[in-house]
């Protein structure tokens, strides 16, 4: 266990160093534009799996949290010209609060009712933002990036690195949860909520905790998007595509292990980027649907589940 932890952190540091080197060595901005989106989806998918995977509560509100992150950043930037890190930290706090309230209100409901409530949340928040003139209303808002700070050569490179750091943070948290008593409790309540409660698991408290952590990470992942696009509008910030994509990524990767959502996000995220460039952005949705159907039929536990099954078979033969 301990040794695995060391390997994990070495891997994380190597990853961040590689990202930092990339920002120095690659001159073209496009790889950062595309890579940023994939990194963002990794954070979202990992965050989604904390509640959706461990606890088994399907959250369709990813776009609500993501959009809230975007608009927290927009608001702080407009009101005080707050720097990027402040925007992200504030977004995480807003996300945690949102997760707490959503959790408290809806996690007493089980299964499908929670999912429906999360969709409702998205619509409520999007409608409120659309009618809030100060942050641009329905027309959206233009943002002018401040000059980039050392050691980065360009703002996109900086955002790319920041999002990579968020990936490490999200994965470290998800991995910690999986290996700790929190993960065991969430797994127990996913299997059988009444039995978990009667075995001493504080089910409501754990679910709310998972919702808070998940929400904070999703909001944090959304915050840099305002500066990334230099523009924000409600219909794209709260686009339901985020919810659907993130759900698909987590399920395709597999939620039984913390690495599953990462694999899913990289696979689906890069496929989407590739298709957007080569064919059209509309075909994304089609590919998403087809892949989801294929996986539900062929590998219901995702790539991680498929891998485990193959390994178990090899072990037997």
């Amino acid at each position: 266990m301990k040794r695995r932890g060391i390997f994990f952190w070495i891997g994380a540091i190597v990853f961040l160093v590689a990202i930092a080197l990339m920002t120095k060595l690659i001159g073209n901005e496009y790889p950062f534009f595309a890579g940023y989106v994939i990194l963002q989806f990794i954070v979202l998918a990992v965050a989604w799996s904390i509640l959706g995977g461990h606890a088994g509560y399907v959250n369709f509100g990813t776009s609500a949290f993501f959009g809230m992150g975007v608009y927290t950043a927009v608001f702080l930037f407009k009101v005080a010209g707050a720097p990027l890190l402040v925007q992200i930290a504030a977004a995480a706090a807003v996300g945690a609060l949102m997760g707490f309230l959503l959790g408290l209100l809806t996690l007493r409901m089980q299964g499908i009712f929670f999912s429906i409530a999360t969709i409702a949340l998205t619509i409520v928040i999007e409608t409120s933002i659309t009618n809030w003139r100060y942050v641009g209303g329905a027309a959206g808002i233009q943002l002018l990036r401040p000059p980039v700070t050392w050691p980065f050569s360009g703002y996109v490179q900086m955002l790319f690195f920041v999002q990579a750091a968020l990936v490490v943070l999200a994965v470290a948290i998800s991995r910690y949860i999986q290996n700790s008593w929190i993960g065991r409790g969430l797994q127990a309540l996913r299997d059988d909520e009444l039995a978990a409660e009667c075995t001493g698991v504080p089910t409501l408290r754990l679910k709310v905790l998972a919702c808070v952590i998940s929400g904070a990470l999703m909001c944090a992942a959304g915050a840099p998007a305002a500066m990334y696009l230099q523009y924000a509008d409600p219909s794209s910030a709260f686009n339901l595509n985020y919810s659907v994509s993130v759900l698909a990524m987590s399920l395709i990767g597999g939620t039984a292990h913390w690495a599953g959502p990462i694999v899913g996000a990289i696979l689906l995220g890069s496929t989407q980027q590739l298709l957007t460039v080569t064919i059209s952005s509309e075909i994304n949705v089609l590919v998403l649907g087809v892949m989801l159907v294929l996986f539900v039929v062929a590998a219901p536990e995702g790539l991680i589940g498929l891998l485990r099954r193959i390994r178990r078979k090899e072990g037997k033969s």
């Binding site: 797994q187 127990a188 001493g200």
Partner: peptide
């Protein structure tokens, strides 16, 4: 009502 995704000893560990 066992925890189905776990082994027997993990059930007790909960």
């Amino acid at each position: 009502r066992p925890f189905r995704s776990m082994t027997v000893v993990e059930n007790l560990m909960v």
